[in-house]
Amino acid sequence: MSPEAFPVIAATGLRKSFGDVVALDGFDLEVPRGGILGLLGPSGCGKTTALRVIAGFETPDAGSVTLDGEPAVGPGVWVPPEKRRVGMVFQDFALFPHMTVADNIGYGLRSGSSRRVDEVLELVGLAGLGSRMPHELSGGEQQRVALARALAPKPRVVLLDGPFSNLDAPQRDRVRREVRTILVEARASAVFVTHDQEEALAMSDKVAVMKDGRVLQIASPHDVYHHPVDCWVARFLGEGELVPGTASGAKVETLLGTFRLAEPANGPVEVIIRPEVVRLYPDAGGPVTVVDREFYGHDQLITLELADGRRLLSRTKPNPAFAVGDRVRVEVDEVMAFPEHGHV
């Protein structure tokens, strides 16, 4: 079969511990060809270890990895990193400080492939900067050199380890967009690691959510946000108030009232109310009080206190109508419910 028939990366049952710390614990992941997969999880969940095992910088204690269907590591198999054709972009960029930008990019190529170097420099928008030294570039430019260096040998997949965490906030969004454009233009398959859910949702064609060394869910950004597999994934991907409730079909009854369910359920459930589904109406006699208001410009996050002292968040348009102390009435759109089994 041609390699196209296989996923670019297939990791099965990976296990890896460092002393007492278990980094990977039955890690399974299939990365489809083309497109960007975001590997999302809290810090310490094993994301980086997973990338390093795939790239060949760590050996797993158990499990296997195939690249384009060829075994890379597994029982009796070990392909060294330089033979895997996997491009890696490190969090700290790891540019060779003693080489020019062009030499950095040409490092993975056969000597004399200066055409490809120029081509890649062009691709990342750094044409003409080939003779600079890495330390003469800004953080964002260094990022693009690291990416260019990884892309130059045309790897089967590019792995990016926390690629934006070394950049400061104003740069980050712009660089993120640039990197996405470059990867799409290069038609590269890519996996990037992040602990920032916004980043994962914005950058990825698919998101794999990780916790405690294993993947809990792989789906499109829309689906992981709106159809999380469990309560933990739901809360990791977005804010939301958690309340117990009892579901019957399309409705769920909670202490805060009865709400419509996005997907029907039955029995005791945990209900998550995302701030964006909580709508507010000014109502001097309303049962709910505004206790805090965080203004973000494009929207605002309002903390509400219910009659019984419970709190609820609401994300609304940047409407100055609601001030701390105001009374309001609340309407809630669809909510998510998960069977109770102690995921939180």
């Binding site: 790239a55 060949g56 910088f57 060294p80 990193p81 330089e82 033979k83 895997r84 054709r85 996997v86 491009g87 890696m88 490190f90 969090q91 700290d92 790891a94 540019l95 060779f96 400080p97 490092y107 993975g108 690291a146 260096r149 990884a150 040998p153």
Partner: peptide, 13 residues
């Protein structure tokens, strides 16, 4: 990481 980057780009140890 600098050395790992070089390995990943296809160089032997």
């Amino acid at each position: 990481h600098i050395e790992e980057a070089a390995r990943g780009l296809g160089r032997s140890p």
